[in-house]
Structures are given as C-alpha cells and as structure tokens.
C-alpha cells in the first residue's frame, strides 16, 4: 500500500492548480478542508506549514469548502484587502491583503467552533504524553500558546494549540494538528527557546492581534493525527512576569466552571455538554499554574506527567 500523498509532495504548479481549481483537499484531524485561493503568499506558506499533512483526492467529501480571495473594486488596488469565504459567504470583515495566513487559520478555527457540534469544543491548547491529554484552557494573553509551544518543542505531542475537541461518546480528545500560532513578544521568546530547529513560516505584522507568527506542527503530531488521547491533566496557566513556576491545587468543581467559561458550545450540547464536561474533570488532575520561565515550566509539567491519571 502506498503512503498517502502529502501537501509537500505537490509541485508548486500542482499546488497552484489545486488552489485555483477545485480546491486543495487538506486532511487535518477528522476533517477535510477544500482550500481555494490565488494569493501568492499561500503558495509559499502552505507547503511550509502543512507540508507533511495528507491530502485527499478530488472525489473525497470535503467537510468545509473555504477560500481566501481578494476584494474587488477599489479595494483590489487601494489598500488591498482579502476575504475568508465559506460556501460563498464571508463570516468576517476583510483584512489587509498581506494577512492571508492569519485569515485562513482563523477561518479554519471558525469552521470548527461554528459547526463541529457533535464534539464539545473548548478554547484550549492540548498536548499528549503516555496516551493522556494535557488541556491548557485560558483566554488570550494568559501565556497558553507560548507554554504549549515550549512543551511541544520538548517532546509533548501536539493535539491542538487552540481547540480542545472532546468526543462525548468516549470522552477522548481528538487531534487537530495545525500550524502553531504565536503573537507579539512570544514569537521571539519561542524562537530563542526552539533554536535553529524552529522556523517560523509566516510572520505578519499589524493584524488585529498585533504581530502573528505561525510555524509547522512537529512531524510526530501530523503522523499521529488520528491517535486520540484520554483525559489526563487540566491546567489553567497564567504568565506572571518574574514569578517562579508553580502548580497549585484546584478543585474539580472550580476546574469545571473554568472550562465552561472557555467552551464554545457547552450550552448548545445541553445535557450532553454537562455530562461530557463532568466526565472530563472527574477523570483529570486539575491545577492552576503560573510561570515566567519556560525551562522551569517544562520541568514542572514533566513532573506532573508522572502523577497517576486522575490524581486529585
């Protein structure tokens, strides 16, 4: 049996033809995205960010048909803009034309948070070790993405840097390995932490979130993109300048309320959402975490991963 075709196997011409034609059918996690665009920046960024991701053929059902397109009229020439489109609709305001990578990434997230209601979806980074998931739920600015990037660079497997996807039927967390996103000062911090092995494929300034950088998920995260993880640890991180890394206890009840505050579709799932959330916290070790230095943080998480699953 031959290995699946990956995006990196395509020639620049073939990639261009797919993006301009029926759409590049990219598999990530349980979904296929059909991506269309004529933006030159995506021609270079997509192979760098998603080169190892498998592709589906043109006859495969695509869950989401998305496109990044140039605005027409004056906005094609004066301060040019681009749109993210799905099924012929544009759910967001247009962005400046150099923001193709951020708008595609944010759009793909929007597809999941707005449609994947067979799963409980949380705003959280998720990593895995020994078959157990480490969930890092937190609002923007908490240092979640920086911590997630540091942990994946030190051997934790990335499931997602943005969305925790929980299957209500099994309680397991689904991988959704995508480009890893960092903002502002975190970009330099993680570049220094990752060293030469880490290459940002895209850095865009002056977005609504400031400077936004993306790098490719590690090969291991993509190759094991179908391998789910059971609940392990729920840790609410907070970056506090100058602080020593410390984990502190959190009751499961507090953790559940905190998770609900970071959920996209908890109320939509109604009773199923409650049961799934309660099962998740009951099976997890729950902690608060504050840090300022990444090497200390990684060491503490390595120690935490040695606790038996579900330890109080």
């Amino acid at each position: 049996m031959s290995a699946a075709l990956t995006l990196g196997d395509l020639s620049p011409q073939a990639l261009d033809a797919a993006l301009r034609g029926p759409g590049l059918r990219l598999r990530t996690g349980p979904w296929v995205f059909a991506i269309r665009s004529r933006l030159p920046q995506l021609l270079t960024a997509l192979p760098a960010l998603y080169g190892r991701h498998p592709l589906a053929d043109d006859n495969t059902f695509a869950d989401f048909h998305v496109e990044v397109i140039r605005a027409t009229g004056l906005r094609r020439y004066i301060r040019p803009q681009i749109y993210f489109g799905i099924g012929g609709e544009s759910p967001f305001s247009p962005l400046p034309a150099d923001q193709g990578v951020p708008i595609l990434e944010w759009g793909m997230n929007w597809c999941i948070t707005g449609h994947a209601h067979h799963l409980l979806v949380l705003h959280a980074a998720v990593l895995e070790r020994n078959g157990r998931a480490l969930i890092l739920p937190a609002p923007s600015g908490s240092g979640k993405s920086t911590l997630c990037a540091a942990l994946l660079l030190r051997g934790w497997r990335l499931l997602s840097d943005e969305l925790a996807l929980i299957d209500p039927a099994t309680g397991q967390l689904l991988p959704f390995p995508r480009a890893v996103s960092l903002k502002n000062a975190s970009i330099e911090v993680i570049q220094a932490f990752g060293g030469d092995q880490l290459q940002f494929a895209s850095v865009v300034r002056d977005t609504v979130k400031g400077t936004v950088g993306h790098f490719a998920p590690p090969p291991d995260a993509v190759e094991r993109g179908d391998e789910r993880a059971g609940p392990g640890w729920i840790v609410f991180p907070k970056y506090v300048a100058g602080s020593a890394a410390s984990l502190s206890p959190m009751t499961r009840g507090q953790a559940m309320i905190g998770l609900i505050e970071n959920a996209f579709n908890y109320n939509l799932l109604h009773r199923t959402g409650f049961q799934t959330m309660a099962n998740l916290v009951q099976a997890s070790t729950c902690r608060r975490f504050q840090y300022s230095r990444l090497d200390e943080a990684v060491q503490l998480f390595d120690e935490l991963s040695c606790l038996p699953p579900g330890a109080a």
């Binding site: 009751t251 609900i260 409650f274 309660a278 009951q282």
Partner: peptide, 22 residues
C-alpha cells in the same frame, strides 16, 4: 436537573435555564 458530585463540591445543570452552578 442534572447533578454530579466532584469531591466535596457538586455541580448542577438546570436544563431549562442553560445554567451550571457549583
């Protein structure tokens, strides 16, 4: 009403109000 005991605390879900309380 749905409830779940989580150690010393209990979470409850009120389906008609879409509310969760600790």
């Amino acid at each position: 009403l749905l409830s779940r005991s989580l150690g010393d605390e209990t979470v409850v879900y009120l389906p008609d109000r879409f509310e969760t309380h600790l």
